[in-house]
């Protein structure tokens, strides 16, 4: 648990950023139709807006579990101190990165 729990948070955060950036999702949910379609499917006037976020969460949870399993294999004495730092530092950096990526929502009217 000492290594698995922090590793889960770290791997989740890293993969979530990747999933968001490259839109890695196992499925797309269309709330207007209450339908799930496999892979990345764009929205349209007929199917309504897509939700990719659920898929990013699913993939990130799986990545977190893989990260936790890998952490259990690594030598405990060498990595314990690193995990206690990375467990909050990586999510903090991920939050900073996502905030930077979202800047276009707040600066759109300044470009023109």
């Amino acid at each position: 648990m000492e290594r698995a729990a922090p590793a889960f948070a770290v791997a989740f955060a890293i993969f979530y950023v990747l999933a968001f950036t490259f839109n890695y999702t196992p499925f797309t949910y269309f709330p207007a139709l209450n339908e799930i379609k496999l892979g990345v499917v764009p929205g349209s006037d007929t199917v309504g807006p897509p939700i990719f976020w659920y898929g990013w969460l699913v993939y990130s949870i799986l990545a977190g579990l893989v990260g936790a399993a890998v952490a259990l294999v690594l030598p405990a004495k060498l990595t314990e101190k690193a995990w206690s730092l990375l467990v909050w530092l990586v999510p903090l950096v991920a939050i900073a990165y996502m905030s930077y990526e979202a800047r276009h929502w707040f600066t759109y009217n300044l470009a023109g």
């Binding site: 698995a4 729990a5 948070a9 955060a13 979530y16 990013w56 969460l57 909050w88 999510p91």
Partner: peptide, 17 residues
């Protein structure tokens, strides 16, 4: 959405520490 996802993933470590 993003921040809450990161928080969710920190809960096991939060409990542990």
């Amino acid at each position: 959405e993003h921040f809450l996802a990161f928080g969710l993933a920190m809960l096991p470590a939060y409990w542990f520490f």
